[in-house]
Design a protein around this nucleic acid. Sequence first.
DNA 1: TCATCTATTGCAACTGCTTGCAATAAGCGG
DNA 2: CCGCTTATTGCAAGCAGTTGCAATAGATGA
Lengths: 149, 149
Amino acid sequence: MNATESLPVPWDSVADRLRERGLRWTPQRRTVIEVLTETDGHITGAEVVERCRERQRFTTPSTVYRTLDVLEQLGFVRHGHGADGREEFHVRPIQEHGHLHCAECGVTWEIGRARAASVADALRADDGFEIEIGHVTLVGRCRKCAARG
Amino acid sequence: MNATESLPVPWDSVADRLRERGLRWTPQRRTVIEVLTETDGHITGAEVVERCRERQRFTTPSTVYRTLDVLEQLGFVRHGHGADGREEFHVRPIQEHGHLHCAECGVTWEIGRARAASVADALRADDGFEIEIGHVTLVGRCRKCAARG
DNA sequence: TCATCTATTGCAACTGCTTGCAATAAGCGG
DNA sequence: CCGCTTATTGCAAGCAGTTGCAATAGATGA
């Protein structure tokens, strides 16, 4: 969208973004954000909880999940589901991307914007459906396993 | 594959298919299969448990889920995940198909083999990845919501 | 600085699903 | 029909995540 897209996200603006909306800046939310700023792209909900607990021993799961919800509403994270359906968060400013998982060898890998685009195009052509490619991990078989089986 | 593809699946062969593999035919498994035969295409794991309990009051979830696992290994069902990551079973002989879910209006619908093929083609062209289209519900925005937003 | 309003927290309970383990019971061979 | 092997069950505990509710504590205005 703009030139700062690939720069570190202004996490420091979170407090203000919250207050703008009548929401509040709390120590618990600060902890979650600290964890997220040190995260490289992906993290599961359970991992966020665990890492928060390393910092603040009495972190409650519900608070963490609720914080992740509001951060998603503000656009700071985007949640999806891994191949097993478990929650997975994409932390900004990671470029939107998809995941492919081979059910046979168990490997999961990323596909970038360009490759995801061809999938998105196919769906858009059919129904006008705009896929959010990052939301689910696509499951199937990788080239090697498909060739074998 | 053959002319019987669209006929009712021979669920009556399950007992034999199990025994062929040294597995066993039990009343609990019979109950699960009864539920599945009365299912029209889709059912969540929790629903299977619930319906089994209507028939056999003391059904245990673990037994049901384990039975669904072996039925999947035998090819009688195929599991996937809904937009929220919850488990969802496709019961044979439903033709393989995919699901699209609009995150905005909340509607989920199916895409048949033909439409799914264009998505599959796009992925195959990129990486040689053979998508199992039924495994996950693709999330995004339907034509209407995309046009609005 | 204080009072007030209400967003947020922590708790406890619950849903969906999984796992380890001891007891049970299919199914086979004799 | 009996006994043996071992697949399967039921239980209890646990993980990931959600929800209702009473108590707490940010933020604002006086």
